[in-house]
């Protein structure tokens, strides 16, 4: 059973590291709210295995002036795709 992890606080929280302790191969991570500050510089997600897809909520990127400048590994998604992702994965784990 694969999980989608949503991270909603900035990198200063260190929560990505906590989250990674639960992340299994095939899990996805979606950055939302202040979590989208993980999207630049790219080194912030260096600890995430290539087995894990990375997403960021487009609305939150746009609001924070980040939409044009995010790591190539991260796919921007809107709310519609956010909902689809929660269906695609078997469960959702929030980190805040």
């Amino acid at each position: 059973m694969n999980a989608l992890h949503t991270i909603s606080v900035s990198p200063t929280s260190g929560l990505l590291n906590s989250c990674l302790r639960l992340v299994c191969p095939g899990d996805g991570i979606l950055f939302i709210q202040d979590g989208v500050y993980h999207c630049w510089p790219p080194c912030l997600v260096d600890g995430v295995s290539q087995d894990n897809a990375l997403f960021a909520l487009r609305e939150d990127l746009l609001a924070r002036g980040l939409l044009g400048k995010i790591s190539k590994r991260i796919t921007p998604v809107g709310f519609g795709r956010f909902v689809e992702l929660t269906v695609d994965y078997d469960k959702v784990i929030n980190w805040s």
């Binding site: 999980a3 639960l22 469960k91 784990i93 929030n94």
Partner: peptide
């Protein structure tokens, strides 16, 4: 074991 716990749970509530 922590990773396995998350993997086999139906629901994870992490407030």
């Amino acid at each position: 074991q922590v990773r396995q716990l998350a993997a086999r749970s139906d629901v994870v509530i992490n407030l």
